[in-house]
């Protein structure tokens, strides 16, 4: 039986950000922007949504023009990604049979 996919993760940009953060300890805003080929405004909004859900944590390193926004995946985010991938698998079960 197919499970419902987490609507917060089932979006191109948010899923890309979560997939990147899954493989690293932390990544900064500029890196995420480059890798996802998104605009700063859009990425900022999506990061805010992920942070509000507790999937990622954001902190600012430094101040002024040199300030960097560092993002990390939280345990809640990791569990959500695990659940998302598990749910995704149910859509493909039976295809190989």
């Amino acid at each position: 039986m197919m499970q419902e996919l987490d609507p917060l993760l089932h979006s191109q940009l948010r899923l890309a950000v979560m997939s990147i953060l899954l493989g690293v300890e932390q990544a900064d805003f500029v890196y995420l922007k480059e890798k996802t080929e998104s605009t700063a405004g859009n990425l900022s909004v999506q990061l805010e949504k992920l942070a509000a859900a507790g999937y990622i944590s954001k902190e600012t390193d430094g101040s002024g023009a040199k300030a960097r926004t560092i993002c990390r995946m939280t345990d809640t985010g990791r569990a959500a990604m695990q659940a998302y991938v598990d749910a995704l698998k149910t859509y493909f079960t039976g295809l190989n049979q």
Partner: peptide, 8 residues
Amino acid sequence: MEEKRINE
């Protein structure tokens, strides 16, 4: 990349 829904 944008905020758009994608298929499985």
